[in-house]
Design a binder for these strands. Structure first.
Lengths: 199, 199, 199, 199
DNA sequence: AATGAATGAGCGTTCATTCAT
DNA sequence: CATGAATGAACGCTCATTCAT
């Protein structure tokens, strides 16, 4: 389901090409983080990647295409996390799941914010994020059910809000509360623990 | 007499001028909501306000200045809410406070998102939002204390995250859960109620 | 010959109207002096005159028209000076003529510079200045002839260059040489005196 | 590699880039000559240079920057002339110096007028012109001294006024007196010759 | 595979001028 | 006679994208 969005240039890349493409993608992520997607300039990206404008358009059809490529990476990471959460076999502790959520957000935050800001015209890219988050939510819901915790859509919604905003704040101001471990504990106590609130 | 051009904000305005200014501000809010601050075009704003480009710059020195004006309005609304929450005399029910939070967000959401996106170069404007939110948080903390609920910074942080994200989602997709009343209930139960989680 | 240019609004003005018009004209002159004709803003002028935009266009059809009105004043002053220089009856000393040249320049310098910069599209306005200066030159030539000093067009041209540039410099930096009296002496010695150079 | 955009001036340019930049500079000079600096439109310049707006801003940060670049060229030319005049070794005839002054003015007149009009906000650029002219004046003063001609600041000032205005007139109306050779003779006779006036 | 150069549509902003009161 | 408000054409400048080498 992550393949719905078709990135540019599907030509086969050799080692050097793959390296250049990766350099550009990382530079893009960094610049998106600094300035936000909209304010990010292709020029900033290529300068950061020590490449030229021409090279950029060799690997991405345009700025949005780069965002799309990063969005796929991000969505894949979150889909994997959803699978982990939901997996009944190797049930990972909630703490680890939350921390993993934060880790992915720490890397792909700018992409997620671009989703949220509706910055991208391409519906398909936006869908990637919505779907991935819905899967995460569903996985947590399943987990609550498995643990016998009563819950409804609103409960899960508040959990997602808490996770996303906290991860966001954590990225903006690392010196204040809201980091992964604290939130993991809150989630543990507040949603899964004995005294957790019930709808 | 004659203070035409530049000063924008400070000029003493007559009735007609005040109306036009308000029309532009509302149009700006609407366009920011539709497209986001960055992607909003001055042209969209003036078209929506049925005014001309020149008129826009008669009342605001530029697009950012308009955002600043709206930000001040928004911050004032939240400061008033903070005062209401904190006011020991006429202690308003938590539900009403939450719903009020949503109401303000419904109007000024685009401005708040611009804050978050760091869209405004003006540090002072950005501070307004941070401070207002901090006051809201402090007011809720006071309320928790008054009610004898144990809490720490992280608790309050998660409450703010919940409020803001939920209000945000509510604005994006009114058909889904996360609307004011539901969240008000969650807050009531989860943070203030008997079974509320404790840090 | 000065009436060639037709200024705006020939309606009869009452006392108050004349005062307002004069206030605007003086403000215009001052702003032209500060910023130069091109960079001068109608807004600067009306603010300085404590009037409104509407009022400005009550007395002048546009910015250029104001320049034209000032140009007429200036040309009249220089035509009068030319007449004085040329007048065989009450032959004024050269010194006084030069000082008079400076005095007029001190007031109307901005207008003259607008002529020189070719700032005005209106040919007629430009002609006013050219003609006035030509008359001054002719008057000096007549004076040289009357004093039996040999001269040719180039001699007179250099004299005009000296006068105009010196008057210009005098306005720009009053603390340095080039003021009226010094130049008057140079003209006296260099063009009319016994040891004056001859073509 | 890749120093695209902003820096303009500093970027290391290849042959093609240097040619384009020179084409733009020459076009700018021509347009400044036709319309004056203020009235000159970037659009005129790029059309004349057969380039696009974007290209212009690839080589100059703005219109004023172009003027600055030309000003530097001009100041260098005049500094070189000052050195030639002052050089005791290969004392160039006055005539040649004057003609050289005219030649530089013929090329850079518009720039010099922009200086005079105070068109440039950048103080440093303005200083270049003032200093260059002061050096020319000093060089002429030295030459007068070397030739045993009595002189003072006013004498030299009048010489500069004569040179500059004559060069200016020469550019405006080539059919009238005031051309290089005539003025060279006037300077020779009037300031350096046997019958030259003395302060 | 990579680059520097070039493009031009599109945006924010200014300001001379007109209008309604 | 005077004013504040409104207008919109025109300008300076940006930047995603394409081109030529």
């Amino acid at each position: 389901m992550v393949e719905a969005y078709k990135p540019a240039q599907q030509r086969a890349l050799r080692a050097q090409g793959r390296r250049t493409r990766a350099r550009l993608a990382n530079a893009g992520l960094a610049v998106f983080a600094d300035r936000g997607y909209h304010a990010a300039r292709v020029d900033d990206i290529v300068r950061r990647a020590r490449a030229s404008h021409g090279t950029f358009y060799l690997y991405f059809t345009n700025k949005e295409d780069l965002l799309g490529a990063l969005a796929i990476e991000c969505a894949q990471a979150y889909e994997a996390l959803a699978a982990t959460i939901a997996d009944a076999e190797s049930v990972a502790p909630i703490d680890e799941c939350v921390e993993q959520f934060f880790a992915i957000y720490a890397r792909y935050g700018p992409v997620i914010r671009a989703w949220m800001e509706n910055a991208v015209a391409d519906r398909e890219i936006n869908r990637l994020g919505v779907v991935a988050f819905r899967h995460i939510a569903a996985a947590f819901a399943g987990r609550l059910r498995a643990e016998g915790r009563p819950h409804d859509a609103a409960t899960v919604g508040s959990l997602m809000a808490l996770l996303e905003r906290s991860a966001y704040y954590a990225g903006r101001d690392p010196t204040r509360p809201g980091d992964a471990r604290t939130v993991a504990r809150i989630v543990q106590n507040g949603y899964f623990g004995a005294g957790a609130f019930t709808p």
